[in-house]
């Protein structure tokens, strides 16, 4: 069980690194959504169900959507 938790935290850190170092902004935003979803699971493990609901609805849902809308208004690829 604890090994599964370590794996989940590893995925969390990998998604954060991916969100920062990738060249494609859309990939970066989706990685940010994965990050928020895993953090909301960690909130639930720390017995904070209120915060977990809020983070799941806002971090993984609305936040990702507004980033995608902003990318639609600008440019998808990061220039040199």
């Amino acid at each position: 069980m604890i090994i599964l938790l370590y794996l989940v935290i590893l995925v969390l850190l990998m998604s954060a690194i991916c969100a920062i170092f990738t060249k494609d902004l859309l990939v970066s935003v989706v990685a940010l959504g994965v990050n928020s979803l895993i953090v909301s699971a960690l909130f639930f493990l720390m017995h904070a169900p209120d915060v977990a609901i809020t983070e799941a609805a806002i971090g993984a849902g609305l936040s990702t959507a507004i980033y995608v809308f902003a990318i639609r208004h600008t440019k998808r690829q990061e220039e040199k």
Binding site: S28, L32, N35, V39, H47, Y67, T74
Partner: peptide, 29 residues
């Protein structure tokens, strides 16, 4: 936009830290 994504990650980390301050082993919600 990459800077804003990084700022969001920092914000999430601060929230995680604050919840961890209140965490007690073996307690309930």
């Amino acid at each position: 936009i990459k800077i804003l994504v990084s700022l969001s990650i920092t914000e999430t980390a601060v929230n995680l830290f604050l919840i961890a301050v209140g965490y007690i082993e073996g307690a309930k919600a």
